[in-house]
Write a protein that binds this DNA or RNA. Sequence first.
DNA 1: ACGGATATAACA
DNA 2: TTGTTATAT
Length: 636
Amino acid sequence: MPVARPEPQEPRVIAHVDMDCFYVQVEQRRNPELRGQPTAVVQYNDWKGGGLIAVSYEARKFGVKRSMRGDEAKMVCPSINLIQVPVARDKADLNVYRSAGSEVVAILSTKGKCERASIDEVYLDLTDAAKEMLLESPPELSELIFEEATKSNILGLTSDVSNREDSMRAWLCRASADYQDKLLSCGAIIVAQLRVKVLEETQFTCSAGIAHNKMLAKLVSGMHKPAQQTVVPSSAVQDFLVSLPVKKMKQLGGKLGSSLQDDLGVNTVGDLQSYTEEKLQEYYGVNTGTWLWKIARGISGEEVEDRLLPKSHGCGKTFPGPKALKNNASVQTWLDRLCEELSERVQSDLNQNKRIAQTLTLYARACKKNESDSIKKFPSKSCPLRYGTVKIQEDAMKLFESGLHDFLGSQNTKWSITSLSVSASKIFDIPSGTGSILRYIKCPNSTVSPANLDCSSLPEDPSLGNKLYIAPNHEEHCEPSLSEKEHCEPSLSEKEDHGNNSNLAKRCQTKEEKKVSKKLTEVKGTCSILKFLSQSPPVLSEKRKFDSLICSHPGPESSSEPNQAEEYKSTQSVDRNSASSSTWMFNVEDIDPAVVEELPPEIQREIHGWIRPPKHASSKTRGSTISSYFLPAKRS
DNA sequence: ACGGATATAACA
DNA sequence: TTGTTATAT
């Protein structure tokens, strides 16, 4: 499980910011009448009033808890307002909360490294900003620190409010002698300012913890809620930890924490401290043992990642009891809905953030009738993610069938599905800037515009501003987990649907047209090349080399471009409100390898580079696999 | 017949 | 890797 990371020797200033009952606040902003009232956000109202997923502090006073039913909440708090999560496609739709979360992240990410930890939480590394503040304003700083930091709860100081100012002054006098504490209080000032800004610009309150590492910051961010912050000076760590129940520590809230209690009799972090590192390693392995030993002492080297966006997108639904899905048709129906939402989300991620997801995974929970064997898990299955709602739907269904096959084994019993979810992962940035393809496309002296080429169906291509990206292939797992090879081949209907594009594809077969094709690649303009590359050949070759092609072009055109093949339309941006450029996604399996052979040698060479990523490039370090294909050589 | 829907991370 | 498992909110 947890692994200890090397400890940075320089003390850092880390904050954990946590929105107060976030979903409730989002609803309160939408309907201000709810402010100050006992309120909870609930999903699916029909069974026992739905499940609570967020509870206002007013309601908490009545004993209302998350994971209560709406009905229970009404019992203990009759005046409670129950607000339902929006529903789309017959499932809970959390998008309003996601985008509210993004609003907050946009503000919180302005003062230092920022990691989106969840829909309503971030970590900040404010070390640089704090140091800067300390350097810039030495003289009058202590008074400023005082004023601002008064708003903080300082761990280790008395919580008696009447004494707070005095103890604060005392602490700050000390702090003036202690560089680390000074840094922390600067961090506290920055966080306080950020929280004010969040409140001003979003109307949301949040709480925060400020400490020298993530673990401690997280531990105290919820200590004084709502709308307060807490600082952990190093001097307070030991006293704080000794009496802290181990279960409160992040990662110890589950089985590992229980094992500490039940197997070792460790109830507090203080208890944990009496174990040697070696002993803990004996019980829990080298990694976890070391990690436990360190966190017991407040040591954690985990870095704040610089990431404002989620690493995956998923959507799912449970089908409890009688609602369980019992045949392929109902699974199909629900999978289609889930995939539709997922497709929208990956597509807008592509359009707005220029990120591309590479893997589609299907999860399910299933029961088998009769057999006591029903403990068996439904295996998750994944495959390359192909953009376009219909493709995702088709692929997800194949994954389901494959999983069901494994699940049932040889038996031929009845089954039922109690939960379904699909997710898109392995998301990569598409680097902006100029890769060699781009250079080629934009290079004026390589552009030839054959008069006889019919480009009328292509969008106007001003060449400047258009970009072509090609993502590397999946290689191995392209020979899919799906047993049938035909999976990768376009379906009959798909081929027919290509319409005018299939004409082009056919034409490409002839020698003459190959010549034309060659010229086409030299045509100035991304879209020409894209169209050229993306034709679906009648027969696909065994080796499918690429995964995807992406073309972005200036926004105004997106609404007025009509003549793309059906397939392209289906994958096109849905986000027509967005003023930014829209993005098309092309699946590489639709590229005719024979066509690639017609490309100019330098392009071919480059493409072969994509086909076979250099093995020495570590696939773990991001940027070396994908980015290196795009980034200009000089910039490496 | 369920705290649901999402997320991240480490493991084998 | 992929698929599984744990954890969190």
